[in-house]
Computed example of a mutant assay.
Amino acid sequence: MTTPLTTAPLEEKASKLDGRNRTSSSKNYALKYVAAAISNMAASGVSNPLDIIKVRQQLRTQTPGSRANAFWSVGVEMARVEGVRSLLNGFSASMLREVVYSGLRLGSYEFFKDTFHDMSKGALSRDGLALKVSAAAVAATVGSALANPADLVKVRMQAHYPLGSPYRNMRHAFASIWQEGARAATSTAPSAAVAGGLRALYRGVDATTVRGIILSVSQICSYDQVKQILKQRGIMEEGIGLHLTASMFAGLFCSITSNPVDVVKVRLMNDKAREFDGVVDCIKTIMRREGPGAFFKGFSMCWARLGTHTIVTFLIFERVRLLLGLEAM
Rank of each mutant, 00 (worst) to 15 (best):
E77C: 05
R321L: 10
L230E: 01
F91K: 07
S176Y: 06
P149R: 01
L244S: 08
S125P: 03
Q225C: 04
L106W: 06
I240L: 14
R305F: 07
L87I: 03
V266Y: 00
R85Q: 14
Y109L: 14
K265H: 12
G234W: 09
A195C: 12
L106P: 01
A328N: 10
I177T: 02
T188Y: 09
D206P: 08
V279L: 15
K32L: 14
F314S: 01
T188M: 13
Q158H: 06
R319W: 12
R168C: 10
S86N: 10
M329D: 15
L242P: 00
A36S: 07
S134M: 15
A36C: 08
R203H: 14
I38G: 00
V264L: 04
S73M: 12
G291P: 05
Y161R: 06
G128Y: 02
A8L: 13
P64K: 05
E11F: 12
M287E: 12
M287C: 14
A136P: 00
K132Y: 02
I177L: 10
L324K: 12
A175N: 11
G251N: 03
M236S: 11
N89I: 05
M329S: 14
S15V: 08
A137N: 10
D262K: 03
L31S: 08
A36M: 04
N89E: 14
S102K: 13
H172I: 02
L324H: 10
Q57Y: 02
M170F: 11
A192R: 01
G241C: 06
A185Y: 01
A207N: 03
F116I: 06
M301T: 10
K284C: 14
F299G: 01
L87N: 08
E110V: 07
G291S: 03
L17Y: 06
K13W: 08
A195G: 04
M78L: 09
L104I: 15
S26N: 10
V280T: 14
C282G: 02
A145P: 03
G164W: 10
K231V: 13
P64S: 11
R85T: 08
E12Q: 15
A246M: 08
S125F: 12
M41F: 03
C254E: 07
A135Y: 00
L106R: 11
N40A: 08
I311E: 00
K132P: 01
E11G: 04
L106F: 11
T209L: 04
R267F: 05
K227W: 10
T313H: 11
L104G: 04
K132C: 01
V263L: 02
R199V: 07
A35D: 05
F253E: 06
K154M: 13
G143Y: 00
F71L: 15
C254D: 04
V263T: 05
R97G: 15
A175R: 13
A273Q: 11
D224L: 07
S39A: 09
V46K: 01
Q228V: 07
H309P: 00
N40P: 01
